[in-house]
């Protein structure tokens, strides 16, 4: 049943204009940035080689572009997620979800996976674009694979967090605003927290950057798993509360 709900959500997204606009804008942005990085790399590559530097296209083209993809995902996911619960409540469709025999856990997991499916084409197209650079320049396949895995993990995490934020509101615009506020806070927390380790623990970038540098750390995986699971549980509780059961 979870798979069916996910498929429904994925289908619903594809039927809307937002998904296609986001996919087109995301692809254009990522492709443009990748080629801009590539052009810059082509300019400095001879000097790097002459100086004996070990930095290659993976460091100077692929990873900065994945950083840009992260920003695109951060900006784009709330646009798709705002319809997940807030949009259903605003349109009156949530009544049918709540009246159904489906448990809150099935509904929420299905919706999160459906949203994630909607983000995958963007991650896939960016990954294929960057992998295709390997035809002309030398890339590190292991780091490329880890970076793709990082994007898959982050997009699933984003889906869980933004669906939770969507569940807090009855208006999609309010859910969108709250999502941007929370994600911007987590994005900038790293910059403003300075040496305060406890705050940096919650920041998003310190958990993504190591993976883009080729480091797979348990603490980063724990951060994403713990926060995503918390978001899922809070969303289920929120849906049960709407049913008046919590």
């Amino acid at each position: 049943m979870i798979a069916r709900i996910a498929r429904h959500e994925w289908h619903r997204q594809r039927a809307g204009l937002t998904f296609w606009l986001l996919l087109a804008a995301g692809q254009m942005t990522v492709a443009w940035l990748a080629f801009a990085q590539l052009e810059a790399f082509a300019d400095i590559a001879p000097r790097l080689k002459a100086g004996g530097a070990t930095l290659g296209a993976t460091d100077l083209v692929v990873m900065p572009t994945f950083n840009s993809l992260l920003l695109v995902l951060l900006l784009g996911t709330p646009l798709l997620a705002m319809g997940s619960i807030a949009g259903e409540a605003h349109s009156g469709r949530l009544a049918l979800w709540l009246a159904s025999p489906l448990s809150a856990s099935r509904i929420i997991v299905g919706k999160v996976l459906g949203l994630w499916l909607g983000l995958l084409p963007l991650v896939a197209s960016a990954s294929v674009t960057l992998a295709a650079l390997g035809i002309g320049v030398a890339l590190d396949p292991a780091r490329l694979a880890l970076a793709v895995a990082a994007m898959l993990i982050v997009s699933l995490w984003l889906a869980a967090v933004t669906v939770w934020l969507s569940s807090l509101f009855d208006r999609p615009a309010a859910a969108l605003t709250a999502s941007y506020a929370v994600l911007l806070f987590l994005w900038l927390l790293d910059t403003f927290s300075g040496d305060a380790t406890s705050w940096r623990t919650w920041a998003l970038l310190p958990h993504v950057q190591p993976m883009l540098r080729g480091l797979l750390r348990a603490q980063d995986l724990t951060y994403f798993a713990a926060t995503a699971l918390t978001a899922l549980l809070l969303t289920m509780r929120g849906l049960d509360r709407r049913r008046g059961r919590a």
């Binding site: 349109s91 009156g92 469709r93 009544a95 049918l96 009246a99």
Partner: peptide, 13 residues
């Protein structure tokens, strides 16, 4: 079977 007052339809489907 339940028909709410606000029709639970996806206009884009």
């Amino acid at each position: 079977g339940y028909l709410p007052q606000r029709l639970p339809l996806y206009g884009e489907l």
